[in-house]
Computed example of a mutant assay.
Amino acid sequence: MVLPGVYAPQEDTELLAGALSDEPLPPGAAVLDVGTGTGALALEAARRGGRVTAVDVSWRAVCAARLNATRAGLPLRVRRGNLFDPVRGESFDLILTNPPYVPAPDGTRPRGPARSWDAGHDGRLVLDRICREGPELLRPGGVLLVVQSALSDPDRTLGLLRTAGLKAAVIRRRRIDFGPVLRGREHWLRHRGLLSATDDKEELVVVRAELPV
């Protein structure tokens, strides 16, 4: 169920779900889904026996995730808050996140549904926080999986996570057609050099980062 104003699962959700399916997830593993939206990824982890906490800054997303968990008959702890704020002091075996990552001409903080995709002038308004704060919540051997656009500098994500002491690599890639948001700012992205004159697709990547034991 997708409530009005809540980010609907799309190609990035599917790509991250594929990476999740490759992760060994022991029964009872502590899982955190940050920016859960409808709860699609959180519920997939719950189906595999994880003890899952889902967080979103949007009350509508929180309601959608709770409704979908009830409909699926799966246990899901859902909290409203800004990124990791609701789970400070806790630790997790796996952190999943599909954050806002699209560069925006207006670098101010977005409002309304745009909070699901707009992420500042360089697309890293949320990604940089995830790279700084996420490693602190991982247990030894824990894994962070994050999906983002190639437009928002995956190399910076890798560098920040490695600086934090994690082993990080891009494990999945997919090229997709431009959606409505990118089509609406295609000229601006080309002007900035984020898209070449011949680019007609967007590349999505999944970064996997593991905290050594």
Rank of each mutant, 00 (worst) to 15 (best):
R80G: 06
V62H: 07
D93T: 03
G81L: 11
E90V: 00
R88P: 02
S91W: 08
T70F: 14
E90R: 15
C63N: 01
T97L: 06
V78G: 10
G73S: 05
P75H: 08
P75A: 07
L94W: 06
G81F: 08
N98A: 08
D93H: 15
L94R: 10
L96T: 07
A65H: 09
A64S: 15
L74R: 08
L83R: 01
R66Y: 00
D93M: 03
T70K: 15
L76P: 06
T70C: 06
G89S: 12
S91C: 09
R71V: 15
V62R: 09
L74S: 03
C63H: 05
N82M: 01
E90I: 02
G73Q: 10
D93G: 14
N82D: 15
A69Q: 04
S91D: 11
R88M: 04
A69V: 06
A61W: 04
P99Y: 11
R77A: 05
T70N: 03
T97P: 04
V62Q: 05
R66N: 01
P99E: 03
N68H: 11
Y101C: 14
R80W: 01
E90S: 08
V62A: 08
P86Q: 13
A69N: 04
R88F: 06
D93K: 05
A64R: 10
P100K: 04
V62L: 09
R71I: 13
P75C: 00
A65W: 05
S91A: 15
P99K: 14
E90K: 13
R60T: 00
P86V: 07
I95C: 05
N98W: 03
L76G: 08
A61Y: 05
R79K: 14
A69W: 05
P100T: 05
L76T: 07
C63D: 07
L83G: 01
D85Y: 04
Y101L: 13
R77E: 09
R80L: 02
L67K: 13
A72C: 09
T70R: 15
T70Y: 14
P75E: 10
F84A: 01
V78T: 14
R79S: 00
R88T: 10
S91G: 12
P100Q: 01
A65L: 06
P99G: 13
L76E: 08
L74T: 05
T70E: 13
R66V: 00
G73Y: 12
R77D: 07
I95E: 02
R66E: 10
R71S: 11
A64P: 05
R71T: 08
V87Y: 01
L94A: 04
D85K: 13
F84T: 02
T97K: 06
E90A: 10
G81Q: 09
R71H: 09
L94C: 07
S91N: 06
G81K: 14
R79L: 15
F92A: 05
Y101G: 13
A64C: 14
Y101M: 12
R88E: 14
D85Q: 13
F84Y: 05
D93L: 02
D85A: 15
S91P: 00
D85P: 00
L96M: 11
L94E: 02
G89A: 12
Y101A: 15
P75N: 07
N82T: 05
V78S: 07
C63I: 02
V78N: 09
R79F: 01
L74I: 10
R80V: 00
A72L: 11
A61G: 09
L94K: 13
T70A: 15
N82W: 11
N82F: 12
L76Y: 12
A64I: 03
L74G: 00
A72T: 07
L67R: 14
L76A: 10
